Amino acid sequence: MSDLKPFDANLAKLGSSNTQEAFAAIQALKNQGIQILPALIEQLRVSDMSVRTMIVVVLGEMGEAAAESSSQVATLMLEDFEQLRMASALTLTRIGSSSIPHLLRILASNDNTACFWAAWSMSFLDPSQISDKALEILRNKRNQPDSPIEVFAAEEAIGKIVGNRLQQ
């Protein structure tokens, strides 16, 4: 691996089973700044779901600077890999308001699990844009979750949405 560029070496380490090595790679990639965004976005097409998930985490660490990745990250919420969906939702929240149009696109889809995570993310960014249909999806997941994390995420999002509606 010594002949690899630092980007390539850190990208390879994202898939490491050694947690410390993977987290160090996240930090190293984040510290390279926005000049690596095009390469990270390109790598979102790799076949290894774990590496794709970790790339999404890197983009989330970059926050608003990773805004140009919002569309691609939102599309990943349509994948069938739970960790990738959750990481994508969190990353879009961390990217901020430029994610809203992409989240609205996902909320308009027929994929209830993707809608669930889009609604969770949107509850942080602009809960006033959550439709009654999306609120119902959150309630249904809270009552019949596919994972324990969904219960907590649903409760959190429902609280934000209801609180926002009470203020209006």
Rank of each mutant, 00 (worst) to 15 (best):
M1L: 03
D8Q: 15
A9H: 14
A9T: 10
N10W: 12
N10F: 13
L11F: 14
K13Q: 10
K13T: 02
L14H: 05
S17Y: 10
T19I: 13
Q20F: 11
A24L: 09
I26D: 00
Q27C: 03
I41V: 15
E42C: 02
Q43W: 02
Q43S: 15
D48T: 12
D48H: 12
D48G: 05
D48W: 13
D48I: 04
D48F: 05
V51N: 00
V51Q: 06
V51D: 08
T53R: 08
M54S: 15
M54Q: 15
V56L: 04
V57N: 09
L59T: 03
E61D: 10
G63R: 08
A65G: 09
A65Y: 12
A66L: 09
A67S: 13
S69P: 01
S69N: 05
S69W: 00
S71L: 00
S71C: 01
Q72W: 05
Q72S: 13
V73D: 00
T75G: 02
T75I: 12
D80F: 04
E82N: 10
Q83S: 12
Q83F: 14
Q83N: 15
L84Y: 00
A87V: 06
S88G: 04
A89M: 11
A89K: 08
L90A: 13
L92H: 01
T93C: 09
S97E: 15
S98K: 12
S99F: 03
I100S: 03
P101W: 06
I106R: 02
L107F: 08
S109Y: 11
N110I: 09
N110G: 15
A114K: 00
F116I: 07
F116C: 06
W117E: 03
A118Q: 05
A119F: 02
M122V: 07
M122G: 12
D126L: 00
D126R: 05
Q129N: 14
I130G: 09
S131N: 03
S131K: 08
D132T: 13
A134C: 03
A134H: 04
L135K: 10
E136G: 07
L138R: 10
L138I: 06
R139T: 06
N140K: 11
K141C: 07
P145Q: 13
I149Y: 08
I149F: 12
E150H: 10
A153Y: 11
I158P: 07
K160W: 01
V162D: 07
V162Y: 01
V162A: 06
N164S: 15
N164D: 15
R165N: 02
R165H: 09
L166P: 06
Q167H: 05
Q168S: 04
Q168M: 05
Q168V: 07
